[in-house]
């Protein structure tokens, strides 16, 4: 009985003591509350709160502080928030903000899946593109292509990237918040940002000479310049044996150029939602 009482007293005094400390802390937290700057709080509410770091700050909080303190005058750094956030930030700070800045999305510039692209060896290491790149620039014969191991999917804060069945990855552009993390981590540079409004893309990243590209992949850009020469106004420009498309102007010639492309690597940009969700 003595032992039981001892346990009881021990229990009771610990509970009392803990309760006392807890109450004390609760009162203290009320009394010692630090008033946050109203502007900062309003700004934090306007930002998406993803803490993705696209603005270059540690998180939404630190960007809000910098904006409120006036140390950062660029109010358009929050890409994930889109036009809504920009509008809110503008009204909080009392400044006109250009909300029409084109939303950028990430896109894999490669369609050389397991059937189209030649593999030089069978990679069986860990599922990480950087690890694969260390081994002879990856298992693809083309060292510029998408390795499809999904390092980008791993860093995407909103899970917009998924692997496909044919050894590539695909970005769901509706979910993409343009934070650019996938672009940073991609070892081959095949992930690039394009305007969401882009109608066509040159889905290849190979800087190899035309002959080599052709040997490595059925759908690689061979730098033949047909798109550039036949449709000079469409915005195609071939550099380093690779055609780049500039989106400054809209020109119907792009569709015809896509049809004329011998490698068939100029494709419509829009990834259909169901295609993205079926993948992987």
């Amino acid at each position: 009985m003595d032992q039981v009482l001892r346990i009881f007293w021990g229990f009771l005094s610990t509970v009392l003591f803990g309760g006392l400390l807890g109450t004390g802390l609760a009162i203290a937290s009320r009394k010692l509350k630090v008033e946050k700057d109203e502007t900062v709080e309003a700004l934090e509410g306007a930002f998406p709160g993803l803490n993705c770091g696209a603005c270059g700050y540690a998180g939404c909080g630190s960007y809000a502080e910098a904006v409120a303190a006036g140390t950062d005058e660029d109010l358009t750094k929050c890409k994930p928030g889109g036009a809504d956030t920009l509008e809110q930030v503008g009204s909080i700070m009392g400044v006109e903000v250009d909300t029409n800045a084109a939303r950028m999305v990430a896109r894999v510039h490669c369609i050389g899946g397991s059937e189209e692209a030649v593999r030089s060896f069978n990679y069986q290491g860990i599922s990480d593109c950087t690890a694969a790149t260390v081994l002879f620039n990856g298992d693809k014969a083309c060292k510029y292509g998408c390795l499809g191991l999904g390092s980008c999917a791993g860093v995407c804060p909103v899970n917009a990237i998924s692997k496909t069945d044919n050894g590539l990855v695909v970005v769901d552009q509706d979910l993409c918040i343009s934070c650019g993390k996938c672009v940073d981590i991609c070892p081959t540079g095949v992930m690039r940002m394009i305007p969401e409004s882009a109608d066509f893309i040159v889905a290849c990243n190979s800087r190899d000479k035309g002959k080599d590209t052709k040997a490595n992949c059925k759908v690689g850009c061979i730098g033949c310049r047909i798109c550039e020469k036949k449709f000079p106004d469409a915005g195609y420009k071939v550099e380093d044996n690779l055609s780049f498309l500039s989106y400054d102007s809209k020109d119907p010639g792009r569709a015809e150029a896509a049809a004329k492309c011998p490698a068939k690597c100029i494709i419509p940009n829009k990834v259909k939602a169901e295609e993205a969700s079926n993948a992987g």
């Binding site: 021990g10 005094s13 610990t14 003591f17 400390l21 004390g24 802390l25 203290a28």
Partner: peptide
Amino acid sequence: LGLTYLQTIVFILTIASLVQLVEMVVQK
């Protein structure tokens, strides 16, 4: 009070709350 056998658990509680309190005071 003859409660010395409780020292470990009571110390944990005290130190944890103390640090919290100090943090608030310093922040203020």
